[in-house]
Design a binder for these strands. Sequence first.
DNA 1: TTGTACGCGTTATCAG
DNA 2: CTGATAACGCGTACAA
Lengths: 326, 326
Amino acid sequence: VSATLADIAKATGTSISTVSRVLTGAAAAKRISPQTREKITVAAKQLGYRPNLLARSLRTRKTHTVAVMVSDIANPWFGQLASLIEQSLHRKGYSLVVCNSWENAELEQEYLRLLPQKGIDGLIIVPLSTKKEQLERYLPEEMPIVVLDRPVAGIPASITSDQEQAVRLLCDKLAMIGVSSVALVSGPRHVFTHRVRSEAVQQRFKVMIDHEGPAQRETGRLAWTQEIAGSRADAVVCTNNFLAQGVLEAMSAGNWMPPVAMFDGIPAMDLLPVPIVSCFQDVHALADGAVDMLLTQLDAPGTVKPIVVPMQVTWNKAFDKVLLSR
Amino acid sequence: VSATLADIAKATGTSISTVSRVLTGAAAAKRISPQTREKITVAAKQLGYRPNLLARSLRTRKTHTVAVMVSDIANPWFGQLASLIEQSLHRKGYSLVVCNSWENAELEQEYLRLLPQKGIDGLIIVPLSTKKEQLERYLPEEMPIVVLDRPVAGIPASITSDQEQAVRLLCDKLAMIGVSSVALVSGPRHVFTHRVRSEAVQQRFKVMIDHEGPAQRETGRLAWTQEIAGSRADAVVCTNNFLAQGVLEAMSAGNWMPPVAMFDGIPAMDLLPVPIVSCFQDVHALADGAVDMLLTQLDAPGTVKPIVVPMQVTWNKAFDKVLLSR
DNA sequence: TTGTACGCGTTATCAG
DNA sequence: CTGATAACGCGTACAA
């Protein structure tokens, strides 16, 4: 396809090693005579040489590629996360391969087995597995892994949001408008974030309806039409934004619009007539932190410490109105 | 790291090639004696052999990896696209690397230069460049490329939405509620979709305000606060959903809520008090079509034909109300 | 049926 | 300063 080191060596009457030394840059090139260096650089440019990074990786055991694994890249929150990670990685000369785990344990395992074979330098993962061994079973000893959004016992390279603090603030806000009983729409409880959020709510309010299902819009719709619509809960709490979106969409069919509490917001929140209060994770901090953590481990396999970033709570105008009317 | 063919050969007292033949599967393995086949399979399993796909790729010149390049994976529409593509590719045994071009020509070129070096089997791209040569300059002759969402002259492997038809329907719908003058909020016109949509609108309505900028939320906000809010256009037309989102968010600060026409919708559209009409691209068809097209070219470098998929127009309840009140 | 030997394109070691 | 030469791990013609 493209010219190789051998081609250039032949063209310039030098040897492969010399060409390699010149083209791999400053370090080794200093000790090469300016003439041959010039000769080789010119020939390389003229032949349109581009190094075969596969071959290089085979030799150096570095691919300059990292993988990120999330439940579903179509979820705008994960999308933003992936986007920031990609941007940040690209700046450092790394490429990104993405994997959708679909919150599916077998799929996660399959990827965990496949990725090292493909040759990645590191992995950023929003893990489904909660055991260190499950995650690292197929990973080479020296391969750095950063768990994101959900802590895993025994893995210090983790960066997460302060869920407890956030959900406390969220509940406070609900209490301020007189909420005492709620309908809870939760994603799968075996997932850390959903479990923590659910439990905090259960502890704080009277849960009249407790609907658990896949963290998709459809679950939210079902929860509303089958259970919540006929109830009289003071508010609806959703453990993520996909669920909330489903609830809101279903809600628009009727007239009753109870306050909704959610996480990570929804576009044009302020325009909605429904009172909404939402926690927001600091996506930028999480993304940058994860990349930093990964690259740190790549350069110097030192010890890293877990990071917990705070969340924020915001509400829309409709919520404000309720707040003021009391 | 992991056991290699040589390790297994040594362990079983056979040769590398025999091991390779057995482990690469059915084809060549048929011609190996059951005993040694068994012996090798067992040893491989026991040693935890996993093929080094880098080395294999170097040899076979196939990486089973494809790249997808979009403006920004954080845009939910591109996110959904990428998600569907990943899902579909994974099923066929391919991995996905994602690139954000940020609608930046230089960045796009940089990626186009980098990706072939990394070794990808094919590329799906939402192109910024409009010239075949720009896109293919650095790509190996035999590497399939599929352009998505925006046609490029001379590249038959393209799958796009029928923008003209869609925008016509959109304008029809606006006309039905008596719109005759509009404020236009457009992404960069050198991008196909934004240009086509803008021109169709300009041709159909009196454009009182014409705001062009990056296809981000911020542009929408600015357009509203700086220009549209003080105007009396009958409606606002945005050439994508990010722009519309910005407009809607800014709009919530005031009381005037003119109808908004957009593309690819916004979550919980039905709940918004603003009359909204939107075109929807068929993401599933686009994603599946792109993958099909790519894999077709990979198996058999035959000729492919461009595909144009229809779009649909939908509107929310607030729009319906306006419609009925006439 | 099996083994030998070579090549994929680089980097790294070791002479000279 | 430069050039052979040996890996890296795997596939595959060619021989046996």
